[in-house]
Design a protein around this nucleic acid. Structure first.
Lengths: 151, 151
DNA sequence: TTGTATTAAATGTTGCTACATCAACTGTAA
DNA sequence: TTACAGTTGATGTAGCAACATTTAATACAA
């Protein structure tokens, strides 16, 4: 369905405005589906992102500042996200020995097991996106890269 | 810059995962720029969206439920967004005569003037997106439409 | 060594989304 | 007319983003 129908707006000021609105709308659409996928597992999309970052370095610890840097949603409260994950015992927080300001965060076995479960769900979910074939998916990615290119 | 570099992740499970992550990331990037554009005007991106919906129907009133339906971010608290806009006197809230449950919301002169200012800023901002040419912008929009197509 | 700047994380505030619930009102059928 | 289901908007809660500030630890220069 065209973006015009989806948001009930007949005209856009320019192809660029149409594209920008379409991007925000489609991103919400995807984020919403992802959220519904995560919820039964007891974590949020942002908490999942933190867990994925930690798995990427496992068994090495990752500092809070490094987590922040890698997150999709820029600088933020990684500290509080880690709080929630500690409470659910999906990660452990330990003081770094060489620098007592820093905090090392490590994913637990329980956290790794959760990610394994979610991986399967994700793989299934991706078939939802197969209204595009692989070539088109790559083409879309490349256009997005080019769009952000000036930075 | 490629999404791999931007989020420091070397590999994705599939072209579809890469595309989904890229979409969320690029949408945040755009939303972030838009937010910075709005802030000096004293409103948020979501409040701006509400104002635009109201302008689209001006001088007719729009009900809260209709605002909700047209928003990019699905069902939500349009009621509270309207609160904020009423406080800033950009909109007026009046009880609907024919149905006392419903609330009619209308944009004020002051609200219209604000939107006119922001329009100019938006036009300027769109040149930021000209790393893509118009053809590519349309191509991107069409791919996004096709992606959501199954719905 | 002492003072200052810097860094890392935590915390407080405002505004938002998603969801559940509530209160007021309306439409309709018994 | 009354009872009840459905609708409309408001409100309470949890979680997150963006930003500013605070606290503690560290680096470094005088």
């Amino acid at each position: 369905m065209s973006i015009e129908q989806d948001i009930k707006q007949a005209r856009f000021r320019s192809p660029y405005q149409r594209m920008a609105v379409n991007l925000l709308f489609t991103s919400n659409w995807i984020g919403d589906m992802q959220m519904r996928l995560m919820r039964p597992q007891g974590i949020t999309l942002q908490q999942y992102n933190v867990l994925r970052i930690l798995r990427g370095q496992h068994p090495n610890p990752v500092r809070v500042a490094d987590i922040m840097e890698r997150m999709l949603d820029k600088m933020s409260n990684a500290s509080r996200l880690v709080d929630k994950l500690v409470a659910k015992e999906f990660v452990k927080r330990t003081e770094c020995c060489s620098d007592r300001r820093a905090v090392d965060v490590v994913i637990t076995e329980s956290g790794l097991a959760l990610l394994t479960e979610i991986d399967d769900l994700q793989t299934g979910w991706e078939t939802t996106l197969s209204t595009l074939n692989e070539t088109e998916a790559n083409q879309l990615s490349n256009l997005l890269d080019k769009l952000r290119g000036s930075e």
